[in-house]
């Protein structure tokens, strides 16, 4: 996704037009992407959303701390888990990936195209001109970065309060073995990237929906319904043939990254499905948007 803002041509053809306003084409710029990220980050509603995402691990950490029995009193497995604060971001990510993080992506992707169409700013972007392909590419990259912000908003405060309350002891893996704090940090980063990739796949669906309507709320709700429906279908055993192709199916496999050694099979399968969703729905968005009459 790094090549999205390459200018589409080289020098302006000297033979065409002799007007005073011909400007040299600039080759490389991330200005539009940075402007897009500032727009997302500067919006009050999005800032509130990040606060909500960050509140969950804090609440969880405090609740566990308050209810944890003292050393030697409680069951052994609980005290072994709580010897390392990093369980807090991991548990919070596990809780929020189901609904809160997809909700955040719904809000952002609703704004992406439908929001601009609703405000009328879409027509002014397109007449700047921003090519429609470039617009979709920049919008999608900004959604992917938004996904990273989302998981970071959960994991970073979670890690900080977890470490503050529970310390930096060894982390007990799901395989039962212990890994050092330094290794555990990298595992948490892997989990964050894996979940962000899943959200990025979902964002492509959201971007596609966003090109279908001029109502950002409608686009947001549609993506939320898509997510909920995916979870429901994933829980119906009779539809097991469909499960491998549901984007949410392997999301919970992030736990495999906490095994010793890491069990890659399901994680790679999950990344593959995320990639398929990203590609298919981005192309669908492009096919829809590149030929659309902009009457908003």
């Amino acid at each position: 996704m790094s090549a999205v803002e390459v200018g589409s041509g080289t020098a302006v053809d000297a033979g065409v037009g002799a007007g005073s306003a011909i400007r040299p084409r600039r080759r490389w710029s991330t200005r539009f992407l940075r402007s897009e990220l500032r727009l997302i980050a500067g919006r009050r509603r999005n800032q509130m959303g990040l606060l909500v995402l960050a509140a969950v691990p804090i609440i969880m950490a405090i609740a566990v701390k308050v209810s944890t029995p003292g050393p030697g009193e409680g069951p052994n497995f609980l005290s072994s888990i709580t010897s390392n604060g990093l369980f807090v971001p991991l548990a919070a990510l596990g809780v929020e990936i189901a609904m809160f993080l997809p909700l955040a992506m719904s809000m952002l992707s609703g704004d992406a195209v439908a929001g601009e169409a609703n405000l009328g700013t879409l027509r002014y972007l397109l007449t700047v001109p921003v090519s429609r392909t470039r617009l979709l590419a920049v919008k999608y990259v900004s959604l992917c970065i938004g996904a990273l912000w989302g998981v970071t908003a959960v994991a970073l405060p979670g890690a900080v309060i977890g470490i503050a309350l529970f310390g930096t002891g060894d982390l007990t893996t799901l395989s039962g073995s212990q890994i050092s704090f330094g290794v555990a940090v990298w595992r948490v980063v892997l989990v964050m990237l894996y979940l962000a990739a899943g959200l990025a796949g979902l964002a492509a669906v959201g971007l596609f929906i966003s090109t279908l309507t001029e109502q950002p709320i409608a686009a947001s709700i549609a993506l939320l319904i898509f997510t909920i429906l995916s979870w429901i279908l994933d829980s119906v055993p009779q539809l097991s043939w469909l499960h491998p192709w549901l984007i949410v199916h392997e999301w919970m496999s992030f736990g495999d990254l906490l095994r010793d050694p890491i069990a890659w099979a399901n994680v790679l399968r999950g990344l593959f499905v995320d990639g398929v969703y990203a590609l298919v729905f981005w192309l669908a968005a492009w096919a829809r948007f590149s030929s659309k009459d902009i009457t908003s």
Binding site: R31, F32, V130
Partner: peptide, 25 residues
């Protein structure tokens, strides 16, 4: 006219300028 309501007039123009691949920052 159509602009982002929660941005200032200046920021709105800056956004359009940023979107222009030919504009010199």
């Amino acid at each position: 006219p159509a602009f982002h309501p929660y941005l200032s007039g200046r920021s709105n123009l800056a956004r359009l300028d940023a979107a222009d691949p030919l504009a010199d920052p």
